[in-house]
Design a protein around this nucleic acid. Structure first.
Length: 502
RNA sequence: UCCCCGAUAGCUCAAUAGGUAGAGCGAGCGGCUGUUAACCGCUAGGUCGCAGGUUCGAGCCCUGCUCGGGGAGCCA
């Protein structure tokens, strides 16, 4: 008797006969035995097919089967360290469902454009699979954290009339003849819900028409936003650090295997526990313009140059070996692979070497009053191995709804959270201006029409309370945790500036 | 909107100083009892992004365009 099983639970089936259904990941046939790697969505398993144990014509059909053909294999489970998941299947039967030929994505390297053109298939590959599973954990941890801490979920509208940040980064839509735009934040709606439930959060897609072609930007991304009544900035920072810590700890617990496959910095993630670093904007500005940063950037540059020289030497050595000849075929192959890796690393370093002086110059020229740029955030986050809160930005550089710090008048009670090791911003948040007159003034200063904000102003008219919240970008969080360089890999179907593949 | 880089076989990349295009993978066929992006042999596969120009001769040099990558601004 055989039973249906999933690869992730094979440890419970050792010695028993089961049927696995999935897709062919790779096949290594030989005359008398073939090793067939099956993936079923829960993992990879090596299936051993011996000639004689199954019908000859089935054996031959299997050996000719193309990558990603769908099939079921029946066999006995046994522990086998040489199999990807630690267990293998000694096959006694198989059924081919959908043979595939010429699957475009091979086990070799591909360029990013090709992979995005084939994103519908690329999702089956190891890296997207690992990242997708971690994303699932991150989202589950987010919901659990808020649900377990007394937050009520409020779904805010996607078609909206109201702008959170500046007015220029919105996607306009024609709503039965009326111009509307896609939500770039649920925050303003959430503030009114917080006055009902006390602690609320919203979680959904967010749309921004920013023309940013960088590895940190998508035009459609997922953001979770908590909003809390009766909270001060100190409380908000504590909430944020407990929140981020809970996400990281959950991934460490549930997805260690995926993190290892991806080559993520697990020891770095293990350091993510409260308290995080706290800096004010003013302190940050001083650091950026200081000799410390000049030295830091110089040291970074020297490291890059040094590393590049090392890679170049290795590359030259490999090429010399190649030219000398006499290498075994497999050694040539291995070298060729390393050469590709080295070229990619060198290209990456060249970009860093090129950007370093520009970023150093931007930092050195930093003057109080400017918003922190992406490169400035990178520098600060590179200096720490824990997340960094930067608080109290200049009022003029920030959105109208942020609460002016009453002790200075020039800064707002806000914060950004920078993920460590150079990743940069994953959270932006603030206390909200809760005084009617102050808020009205700010709306006018920004040139907005107060009438559009009538209901928002109402919240300050009827029982206003100190309150605040923040937004965490899911893809950025996933990219930081997984060590993925580009956030387009952290969502199944990314929307990029000027580009939608599928 | 601005700055930098790139486009050669289905894929990833080579082509020294301008001299009529190569490798690996993938595909097809054959071989191999345990492989780990297996290995060995053979076969097929290219209008060098597009349009001009320089030259006896252009993948390589020049101009324009298209597409892609990275970065600045802005931000999650």
């Amino acid at each position: 008797m055989d039973s249906k099983a999933f690869i992730s639970s094979l440890k419970d089936w050792v010695g028993k006969e089961v049927t696995l259904s999935g897709w062919l990941y790779n096949n290594r046939p030989s005359g008398k035995v073939q090793f067939l790697i099956l993936r079923d969505g829960t993992g990879l398993c090596q299936c051993v097919i011996e000639r004689g144990k199954i019908a000859d014509d089935l054996y031959d059909a299997l050996s000719r089967l193309g990558q990603e053909s769908s099939l079921s294999i029946t066999g006995t489970v046994r522990a086998e360290p040489r199999s990807p998941g630690g267990y293998e299947l000694a096959a006694c039967g198989a059924q081919i469902h959908g043979p595939a030929t010429d699957y475009p994505i091979t086990p070799k390297e591909h360029g990013i454009d090709f992979l995005l053109q084939n994103r519908h298939l690329h999702l089956r590959s190891q890296r997207p699979w690992c990242i997708g599973r971690i994303r699932h954990t991150v989202i589950d941890a987010i919901r659990r954290f808020f649900n377990d801490n007394g937050f009520i979920l409020v779904d805010t509208p996607i078609f909206t009339t109201i702008a959170g940040e500046g007015e220029q980064t919105l996607f306009e839509v024609d709503y039965f003849g009326q111009p509307l735009h896609l939500a770039q934040t649920g925050q303003l709606y959430l503030e009114s819900a917080a006055m009902s439930f006390g602690r609320v959060y919203c979680f959904g897609p967010t749309f921004r028409a920013e023309k940013s072609k960088t590895r940190r930007h998508l035009t459609e991304f997922w953001m979770v936003e908590p909003e809390v009544a009766y909270i001060d900035l100190k409380g908000l920072l504590e909430l944020a650090e407990n929140f981020v810590t809970s996400i990281v700890q959950r991934v460490l617990k549930d997805n260690r295997c995926e993190l290892e496959t991806l080559g993520a910095d697990i020891t770095g993630l293990e350091k993510i526990v409260p308290p995080f670093v706290r800096l004010t904007y003013t302190e940050t500005a001083d650091i950026l313009a200081s000799q410390k940063t000049v030295d830091f950037m110089a040291r970074q540059l020297a490291e890059f140059v040094d590393q590049k020289a090392k890679y170049e030497k290795e590359l030259a050595d490999l090429e010399a070996q190649e030219a000398a000849g006499g290498l075994k075929k497999w050694q040539q192959e291995k070298n060729a692979r390393r050469v590709l890796e080295l070229r990619a690393e060198i290209a990456e370093l060249e970009i860093k070497i090129e950007n370093n002086p520009k970023h150093a110059q931007l930092a050195a020229g930093f003057r109080w009053g400017k918003d922190l740029g992406g490169s400035d955030e990178t520098i600060i986050s590179l200096m720490h191995d824990k997340p960094v809160f930067v608080t109290h930005y200049p009022r003029d550089a920030k959105a109208f709804y942020m609460k002016t710090d009453r002790s200075s008048g020039k800064v707002v009670e806000n914060f950004d959270l920078l993920a460590p090791a150079g990743f940069g911003e994953i959270i932006g948040g603030s206390l909200r201006e809760d005084d009617y007159q102050e808020l009205f003034k700010r709306i006018e200063e920004e040139g907005y029409n107060p009438q559009s904000y009538q209901w928002y102003l109402d919240l300050r008219k009827y029982g206003s309370v100190p309150h605040g919240g923040f937004g965490l970008g899911v893809e950025r969080t996933v990219a930081w945790i997984t060590g993925e360089k580009h956030i387009r890999q952290c969502i199944a179907f990314p929307r990029l500036m000027d580009k939608i593949y599928l």
